[in-house]
Simulated assay, not measured.
Amino acid sequence: MLAGPYGGVDVMRGLLGSGRLRLAAVTEADAIRLYEALAEPAMSAGSRSPFRSLERTERWVAHRIDEQRTAGLCSYVLCDRETGDLVGTCGVRRGPAVAESELGYRIAGRYRRRGLATEAATAVVDECRAAGLSRVWATIRPDNVGSRRVVEALGMRLTVTDLDDAGPLHRYAVDL
């Protein structure tokens, strides 16, 4: 068990599986593959995406490795079981409140609309439950219909709508 802000929470396992995916804890060696798979030309210079440059991707990876080491939370690289292709990432990170972790996921453009985000997020939320987390939340822009469908499939419900500099932001949550 880990102490600290997530006291009483077991460490999430570094390797998970689902029907079509292998989920392995993010490592430093994954940065270049994540950047190549998830950087999309349509992203503007103002994008908040951690994958818009290799440097930002490396920082994102370092933060996720630190969270696994210090809080037991895990972000995973998603690979197709048959081809070994990197299709995205999914995991949880520290949230703003004790015992609340934020779920995040990103699927490479060419793999979207196949249910892979839902499959990966289901495996991660199941692992959160097994590790003893009591609640998981996600923030989604109102116009991101696909992402809303993913969290609703996980049993998450809209709890509040906040405003930030980019507009409305829905917060969904589920008690585990």
Results as ranks from 00 to 15, higher is better:
Leu2Lys: 01
Ala3Tyr: 02
Gly4Gln: 06
Pro5Ala: 06
Pro5Met: 11
Tyr6His: 11
Gly7Met: 00
Val9Ala: 03
Val9Pro: 00
Val9Met: 06
Asp10Gly: 06
Asp10Glu: 12
Asp10Ala: 14
Val11Met: 09
Arg13Asn: 04
Gly14Cys: 07
Gly14Lys: 09
Gly14Ala: 10
Leu15Trp: 00
Gly19Leu: 06
Arg20Leu: 04
Ala24Pro: 01
Ala24Ile: 10
Ala25Glu: 10
Thr27Ser: 11
Glu28Thr: 08
Ile32Trp: 07
Ile32Gly: 03
Ala37His: 05
Leu38Arg: 03
Leu38Phe: 04
Pro41Ala: 05
Met43His: 05
Ser44Arg: 06
Ser53Val: 01
Leu54Glu: 06
Arg56Trp: 03
Thr57Cys: 02
Glu58Met: 02
Glu58Ala: 09
Arg59Pro: 00
Trp60Ser: 11
Trp60Phe: 15
Val61Glu: 07
Ala62His: 03
Arg64Trp: 12
Glu67Met: 13
Gln68Asp: 08
Gln68Gly: 12
Gln68Leu: 12
Thr70Cys: 13
Ala71Thr: 10
Gly72Leu: 07
Cys74Asp: 02
Tyr76His: 09
Tyr76Asp: 10
Val77Gly: 07
Glu82Ala: 14
Asp85Ile: 01
Thr89Val: 14
Cys90Thr: 05
Gly91Phe: 08
Val92Asn: 07
Arg93Asp: 13
Pro96Arg: 15
Ala97Met: 14
Ala97Asp: 12
Ser101Gln: 13
Ser101Thr: 14
Glu102Cys: 06
Leu103Phe: 12
Ile107Leu: 04
Ile107Thr: 09
Tyr111Gly: 09
Arg112Thr: 09
Arg113Ser: 11
Arg114Phe: 05
Gly115Val: 04
Leu116Asn: 01
Ala117Thr: 10
Thr118Ala: 15
Ala121Lys: 12
Asp126His: 13
Asp126Glu: 15
Glu127Cys: 07
Leu133Val: 04
Val136Asn: 02
Thr139Asp: 11
Ile140Leu: 09
Val145Asn: 02
Ser147His: 03
Arg148Gln: 10
Val151Asn: 01
Glu152His: 03
Leu154Arg: 09
Gly155Ser: 12
Gly155Val: 07
Gly155Asn: 11
Gly155Trp: 07
Arg157Gly: 14
Arg157Leu: 14
Arg157Pro: 11
Arg157Gln: 15
Thr161Tyr: 08
Asp165Trp: 05
Ala166Lys: 15
Gly167Phe: 06
Pro168Arg: 15
Pro168Lys: 14
Tyr172His: 08
Ala173Ser: 15
Val174Gln: 09
Asp175Val: 15
Leu176Val: 08
Leu176Ile: 11
